[in-house]
Simulated assay, not measured.
Amino acid sequence: MGTSGTGSERPCWVVFDYGEVISKPTSALPRITAELGMDGAALHSVSAAYFAEREAYDRGCDDHEYWSAVAARLGTSVDERLSRELTRLDVAGWSETDPGTLLLLRELTASGTPLALLSNAPGSFAREAERTRWAEHFHQVVFSADLGMAKPDEEIWRVLLERIDASPERCLFFDDREPNVAAARAAGLHARRWQGPEHAREVLRSRGVLPAANDD
Rank of each mutant, 00 (worst) to 15 (best):
L147R: 12
L147A: 12
L147D: 06
M149A: 14
M149Y: 01
M149L: 12
A150F: 03
A150G: 11
A150D: 07
K151V: 10
K151C: 09
K151F: 02
P152K: 03
P152N: 02
P152C: 07
P152F: 03
P152M: 05
D153W: 03
D153V: 01
D153H: 00
E154K: 02
E154N: 07
E154S: 10
E154Y: 00
E154F: 06
E154D: 13
E155V: 10
E155I: 10
E155C: 10
E155S: 14
E155P: 01
I156C: 09
I156D: 04
I156R: 00
I156L: 13
I156Q: 07
W157F: 12
W157P: 00
W157C: 00
R158L: 01
R158K: 04
R158I: 02
R158Y: 04
R158Q: 04
V159I: 15
V159K: 07
V159G: 04
L160K: 06
L160S: 04
L160V: 02
L160A: 02
L160P: 04
L160G: 01
L161G: 00
L161T: 04
L161W: 03
L161M: 08
L161C: 01
L161F: 01
L161Q: 05
L161N: 02
E162T: 09
E162Q: 12
E162D: 13
E162W: 00
E162N: 09
R163E: 01
R163C: 06
I164Y: 01
I164F: 08
I164G: 06
I164E: 03
I164Q: 01
I164T: 04
D165H: 15
D165C: 14
D165Q: 15
D165P: 05
D165K: 15
D165F: 07
A166R: 14
A166M: 15
A166V: 14
A166I: 13
A166T: 15
A166N: 15
S167T: 15
S167P: 11
S167M: 14
P168H: 09
P168F: 10
P168Q: 12
E169D: 15
E169V: 14
E169S: 15
E169Y: 13
R170Q: 15
R170W: 13
R170G: 14
R170V: 14
R170S: 15
R170P: 13
C171I: 11
C171F: 06
L172S: 12
L172C: 12
L172E: 13
L172Y: 13
L172F: 14
F173H: 03
F173T: 02
F173N: 01
F173I: 05
F174Y: 13
F174V: 06
F174G: 05
F174E: 03
F174S: 06
D175V: 06
D175F: 06
D175T: 02
D175E: 11
D175S: 06
D175G: 08
D176H: 00
D176C: 01
D176N: 09
D176I: 03
D176W: 04
R177S: 09
R177Q: 11
E178D: 09
E178C: 01
E178R: 08
E178Q: 12
E178M: 10
E178Y: 04
P179R: 09
P179Y: 10
P179S: 12
P179H: 11
P179F: 11
P179I: 10
P179T: 12
P179N: 13
N180A: 11
N180I: 02
N180M: 09
N180T: 05
N180D: 10
V181F: 08
V181G: 00
V181S: 00
V181Q: 05
V181M: 05
V181I: 14
A182S: 11
A182G: 07
A182N: 06
A182I: 12
